[in-house]
Design a protein around this nucleic acid. Structure first.
Lengths: 194, 194
DNA sequence: AGCAGTCCATACGTTAGAGTATGGAAAATG
DNA sequence: CATTTTCCATACTCTAACGTATGGACTGCT
């Protein structure tokens, strides 16, 4: 194991992780139903034979890819939101995170288009729970009552999901444009009073 | 044409409109990719032979079905929103419409999951434009400035789309429940000041 | 050198669904 | 009544994609 020449680009043999990574890229670009074994293999310069050595079947690849994405996203959420003390700044940061981490958000956006998929559905539930819970506790810290904070968290997350949907429809302003910034300011002022 | 026994349920032969209607039901229930000729035919108690007499191909069925839905939805929007003078009541009515017209909204929700589909994309664009334009003009009547109203309309429609997404994930309260009503009240108070 | 395990290529079997070709029954029409 | 038109069933072809079976090359170990 661990041969001396295991540098990323020099490695000639693939790992399961490589397949998962490419699957996630495929999900972000073309959706989960585009994760086809043979087309992925072509894209990676190999054939199906490689895939079926690393995975028993297609579902397994999807399962592992989604788990990998979820872990990455969870760590990401903790790192970018857990460290900020001021709850208002934490909510601001939640919105602005949409600008960075493009791959992660594109994966989520694609997964939202497959909410009925048996492997995607529970994942989306967990992600939504985690994020809304973060948002809700921030609102509670600001001073809202329990049920108020709950509703406002749902509205906040809905606005986020709706923005992703509008982006999929090419009807949301691109990131880092002045229109995007202006809209973000409006959202923050409307949803985060004070 | 128009034989005497053309009553809806007595008619033994199908029309193109029947196929479009069943296609829309299929879209609402299982998404647009589930609109398969043979499965639809089985569901309607006939075979493919019938379909390919009424339509040249599958794309044509989808095109006609979507056009039919769009017309119905547009008329619906005019009827339920155009007749209300008070802009605040008009916005309230926009949200509450989610409770009724279940088929129409389920179709839209399913279509949002196929925003990358070449036949769905332009439709979603037109629908969003129409609805946001209605919402924006209501905000302008209330007294918001141009750009403010524009942003607020986008936020409002995003909240609506996000709610549909959460419903697809089984994470939004069911209609006609007290939780749904409470959430709606919160949304209205937050997005429609005064 | 020789053996075993690792990784991949190739060829095949199988299924779902789109679309075509054709025949047949029933209704409308002359 | 005869014929044409309408509407649908049946039987094919074709393609994409999953999964399997098997052989071969390369690598590390003894």
């Amino acid at each position: 194991m661990v041969p001396s020449a295991m540098r990323k680009k020099e490695r000639s043999t693939l790992s399961a992780g490589d397949w998962e990574q490419h699957a996630l890229i495929m999900i972000a670009e073309c959706g989960i139903r585009a994760v086809a074994v043979e087309s992925l293999a072509r894209r990676m310069g190999v054939t199906k034979g490689s895939f079926y050595w690393h995975f028993p079947n297609r579902d397994s690849l999807i399962e592992q890819s989604l788990l990998r994405w979820e872990k990455h996203d969870e760590a990401n959420l903790q790192a970018s939101l857990g460290a900020i003390d001021n709850p208002r700044e934490r909510l601001r940061s939640f919105f602005l995170r949409t600008s960075r981490e493009k791959l992660t958000h594109n994966v989520l956006s694609s997964l939202c288009s497959a909410a009925d998929h048996p492997q995607v559905e529970p994942l989306l539930e967990r992600v939504a729970e985690r994020r809304m819970s973060h948002i809700k506790s921030a609102y509670i810290e600001i001073g809202f009552a329990e049920s108020e904070a709950s509703h406002r968290a749902r509205l906040t997350y809905s606005a986020y999901l709706g923005f992703l949907q509008l982006r999929r429809q090419h009807q949301a302003p691109g990131f880092s444009t002045e229109e995007f910034e202006a809209y973000m300011m409006h959202v923050i002022e409307t949803l985060i009073p004070g």
